[in-house]
Each structure stands twice: as C-alpha cells, then as structure tokens.
C-alpha cells in the first residue's frame, strides 16, 4: 500500500531532470569548423577537391547533474585535447563538419527515485567530425 502511494506520488509530481554542458575547444591546435568550410592562410575557402578526409574525429562523454538539473557537475566539456591527439595521429590539418549531439539518458527516468534531489540526471554527448588534410601543393600555394 505504502509502496503504491510512493509510486503514485512519483508519477504525479516528478519534475524535470537531465543535464547540460558547454562544449568548447579553446586550445585546439587546428581549425575546428561546424560547417564543411575552412579557410587557408590567405582567407580563401579550401575547396573540396583540394583536401581529403583522412579520418573521423570521435568523442563521447556523459555529463551529470544533481537537484533536478540545477547543479551541473560538468559545466564545460573541453574537446581540445582529443582533437589535438586524434588529428595528430591522422596527420590532419583541420576538423570540419563537426556535429555535436546531446541525448537524455535513462538514469533519471527511474520512477520514484528521481524525486530525490540527489538522484543524478545525465546527458550523453557525442561529437563527430571529419579530419581533413589539405593537399600539400594547395598549402604551399597559400603561403
């Protein structure tokens, strides 16, 4: 009986839960663009035929919060280090077509428990992009 009442309260009154974060890349050593476009040193767009995709940038993380999402435990998600490492491994010059996807996770959806302020909410963050290399003759021409 008491368990039923708790479940009923959970169904009726439970509120918002989740998490949020700011994705940044302040110390990336290469340009990171959310579009397909990137500039060369002269300010010209590097055309598609002047570059090649040499790999895929991939970064996944989960960010958490407490107090129904009011207290974010990961205010900032810095992807600079991952960019520098993965671009360096592939010998790339830039990351283009960066996509950042956020999705609520199920941890906060456990009915009843999510009434508790200290019950965590979370969000999956997926970051994907193309690691590109500009053709060497194009780079020389831009200098």
């Amino acid at each position: 009986m008491r368990g039923g009442l708790i479940l009923l309260c959970g169904l009726v009154t439970s509120g918002c839960y989740g998490a949020s974060t700011d994705v940044v890349a302040p110390t990336a050593k290469v340009p990171v663009s959310l579009s397909r476009a990137v500039h060369d040193a002269n300010g010209s767009i590097v055309e598609l035929g002047e570059r090649e995709v040499v790999g895929t940038f991939s970064y996944d993380t989960t960010v958490w919060s407490l107090a129904y999402g009011a207290a974010d435990l990961h205010g900032t998600t810095d992807i600079s280090e991952a960019i520098n490492a993965q671009v360096g491994e592939q010998g790339g010059d830039a990351v283009t077509n960066l996509e950042i996807t956020g999705k609520a996770c199920g941890w906060g959806m456990v009915l009843g428990f999510n009434l508790l302020p200290l019950w965590p909410g979370c969000e999956y963050i997926e970051v994907r992009g193309d690691i590109i290399r500009v053709r060497r003759d194009r780079r020389e021409a831009a200098r």
């Binding site: 302040p26 990336a28 959310l34 579009s35 476009a37 500039h39 767009i45 010059d93 960066l98 956020g102």
Partner: peptide, 25 residues
C-alpha cells in the same frame, strides 16, 4: 529519448569552435 544535433552542414562559410581560424602554420 529525444536527441538533438548542432551542426551547419550546408553553410558555405566556416563556423569555428576553435580559436585557430585557418589551415597552415
């Protein structure tokens, strides 16, 4: 769960998240 993706796949101009804004040295 619903998800959302931030990207500008059709934009002809660069949209930089980095401070570095061009390829090269």
């Amino acid at each position: 769960c619903r998800s959302t993706t931030v990207s500008y796949p059709f934009c002809p101009a660069p949209v930089y998240l980095s401070k570095v804004d061009h390829v090269g040295d």
